[in-house]
Amino acid sequence: MQMSPGSRKTLLRQVPTVVWVLLGMILFFARFAPAFFTLKNAVNLLTQGSILMILCMGVIVVKITGGIELSVGAVMTLAGMVMAWALAYAKLPIPVALLLSLIVGGLCGLLNGFFVTKMDIPSFIATLGTQGIAAGISLGMNNGNVIWGLPASIGYLGNGTFLHLPVPMWLSVLAFLCSFTLLNFTPFGVYVYALGGNEQALVLTGKPAWWYKTLVYVYAGLMAGLAAIVITGRNMCAQPTVGLGMEFEAFSAVVLGGSFAAGRGTAIGTVIGVLFILILRNGLNVMGIPTYIQLAIIGPVLIGAIVLSVLVEGGAQK
């Protein structure tokens, strides 16, 4: 995309296609659903969506390296279950429980990284295996039951406000800033793109590529741990199936955000992809469309937006 800067036409062209579709969608909902275009709904949408946003901030980093991360939903569930177990049954102090959630997330990430780098298992299968393991432990550890009885103060992390804005929103901003900085302003970010672009070259420069790759999965796991804190705080309980299907939503958001192939994708693009999914679902909700028809609409719109982006932006640009 080498274009001379300055002229309005090229500037417009640099805006990803999905943004235009998103704007069109917002206009559509604003016109046909009066309750949609309000500040209250926007805040509500971003609060509801903060969990997906946090998860995607981890998934995008894995996606850029060319990996597919299918365990984040289950890992989030497990981290939430362990955290709730620590609070309700082991009566550990809150900071320890929060730390435990992050540690569980990180360990699951480490397991993914180990499967991928040391056992040479394709990321798709490795994270699928971790998904099964994490989902199985989440179900088995409390016989499939929800864990209740959390201290009231934990609710602040899911329902509280800070500077007039919901805490989950702040946490999703924090997650975004982490990934944004990581990808753009650190040597590690350079290695992440290198892993996706040409892993062999990175190996030849003498860098421990396998270790960077492992860390990428650990990072995604940590984000899942953070998301677990938010969702447990919001629900005031830990459900053993709460993250079911989240990994597929995260995958679509990341792809919509421009990560069509290995080595491609940005933190900002991912925000747009997440917003796309959130706004589509929220708008249909506000319009009062029944759930089963919503599902019939969401699919074609998602694939349509992806096909359009790929066609306009010249395919995967291999």
Partner: peptide, 25 residues
Amino acid sequence: VKLPSAIATYGMLWVGRGLAFAIMG
């Protein structure tokens, strides 16, 4: 269209699901 197969068929996943919901209610 030259979409990566994971993306193309993932979209089809949603389309098929959506059609199924639309037919059955």
